[in-house]
Design a protein around this nucleic acid. Structure first.
Lengths: 114, 114
DNA sequence: ACAAATACCTTGCCAGGCGAAGTATATCTT
DNA sequence: AAGATATACTTCGCCTGGCAAGGTATTTGT
């Protein structure tokens, strides 16, 4: 919780892509994994998560298929595409650059040169 | 340019507050300073800048007054308030924490513990 | 029988970024 | 003197992404 959504905004897609880069997965599992990874400091809201899936699929960054669970609630699995992987790599690079810029811009007496 | 606005989103206020923490200033000057600091890699769009001023003033984080330029276009100067300073410090802390979380969530094979 | 956990989905609001267009003054160029 | 460019501010209206709220269905624990 607690982390401002405006700071995370724009990272949702990257976070999801990162998980799918490791293995096919489904919404609930991805979100649980985020919570574990951050020691419950962060989670995606369901609406955020599922609208992100729609967005990513529409952009051909992921594809989906229904799992064939014999038991339990049905799961829709997602797979990252080649384009999705490329986008993930790009977003990671962008993040590294953005981090430096933001640090420069919000730290007091920040350096001018690089 | 080029840096995705969704990544910067939410930092606009902090960036402005940081500049005003140093000295009273006006829109054009703040934006020029941002461009210089980032070697022209980033700038605030005018609409973004001025709507941010409205937002910050409404929230009592800054106050404004007209400069008494004898020549040149008129300038509206902004001053940070005590509340604004406190907000700036808070935002900086939040950013430090968010950075760690985001790094954890988007880097491949990221650590689980801290 | 009921609650809680797993798992998914959609509608509709809200906030923030920003493109586009406009106003006004001063300076530089031809 | 005319026109471009830089300084400086402002507002309107669109678009996008987060998410509260509400809903469905299955399984497991009490």
């Amino acid at each position: 919780m607690s982390i401002a959504s405006d700071i995370i905004r724009g990272h949702t897609d990257t976070i999801i892509l990162r998980h799918l880069a490791e293995k096919d997965s489904y919404g609930y599992e991805i979100n649980k994994s985020i919570q574990e990874k951050t020691n419950n400091q962060y989670e995606l809201k369901e609406a955020t998560l599922y609208t992100a899936f729609r967005r990513l699929e529409k952009a051909n960054l992921i594809t989906s298929y229904w799992g064939d669970e014999a038991t339990g609630a049905r799961r829709r699995y997602y797979s990252i595409t080649k384009m999705g992987l490329a986008m993930y790599e790009q977003n990671k690079e962008d993040w590294e650059k953005a981090k430096i810029l933001i640090d420069k811009l919000i730290s007091y007496g920040g350096a001018v040169n690089d």
